[in-house]
Design a protein around this nucleic acid. Structure first.
Lengths: 140, 140
DNA sequence: TCTGTATACTTGCATATACAAATATGATTA
DNA sequence: TAATCATATTTGTATATGCAAGTATACAGA
């Protein structure tokens, strides 16, 4: 069903939830080759770009709470893609060799994801929408 | 942190997830007077407007899967706000008297929610964004 | 130095949601 | 009519996520 058939789509709640779910589905497809969910994949990309990054900082980058980061890292540690080190109250997250070896695959999935939605929406359209959504998010 | 500080906010995945989470928070606040989560509240509103609606149809309206509707209805039945009747393979969902008595409160929360975000974003701005997001969702 | 406060992270718990499988019913066709 | 297929719903299970509380560490002031 097109959302324009719904009575509730006039509402920001529905529009944003529905869009997020659709986008998530597309993202899940795009990252399937890595065996990781989108969140896990983005965290991997972040840690590869900033090895040693701390959970709180990673949470800010990814706009997730520290506790969610902990859970994501736990799973990626189980998969031997990341390791945590502790110094005092600080934790650093590093990629393992296995994690590093994944970098290219992750990048190509990111590229595919970007291309699959910008093919549907148009590159201009989609980047404008992304910018607008960020503005909205910041204001709220 | 403003999302414009993040490297990943260029990506539709983050933008849409982050926006949805922010909007959800606002919605949770708005519906607090009812003691219901936003999804439950919207389902109540739908059933009040279309008494006897079937789960699948409700799912289409609310853009949720049938199984999610089942779970939502279960909780609303526990609270004695809805009841289900079964005829053959079909299920109909009706508001109870207690549910009907809630209608005004629900509507006023809906109004408050709408006003709280359109106060922040501007009425034009927000309705344009909602329309754009719906278009995006339909295309994906 | 000790004490109180602030920070960083983790854990326990709760929630919303989906998918896939199970169940029950209905419809169609051989 | 019996068998097959389709539809509507529910249930089992898994996931992502957050909040609040707990824990461990650091820091600052008396």
């Amino acid at each position: 069903m097109k959302s324009c058939d719904s009575t509730y789509n006039k509402c920001l709640y529905f529009s944003s939830q529905a869009l997020a779910r659709k986008v998530e589905k597309l993202a899940i497809e795009s990252w399937k080759p890595t065996g990781l969910s989108p969140s896990h994949a983005y965290l991997m990309l972040l840690v590869l770009r900033e090895p040693g990054i701390q959970p709180t900082l990673a949470g800010e980058q990814l706009q997730l709470t520290p506790s969610t980061i902990t859970r994501l890292v736990e799973k990626l540690e189980e998969k031997k893609l990341l390791i945590r080190t502790n110094e005092g109250k600080l934790t650093n997250i590093y990629p393992t060799p296995k994690g590093k070896a994944m970098q290219e695959l992750l990048n190509s999935c990111l590229k595919n994801f970007y291309e699959s939605y910008s093919a549907i929406l148009g590159k201009e359209n989609s980047s404008r929408m992304v910018a607008d959504m960020n503005t909205l998010t910041d204001k709220l």
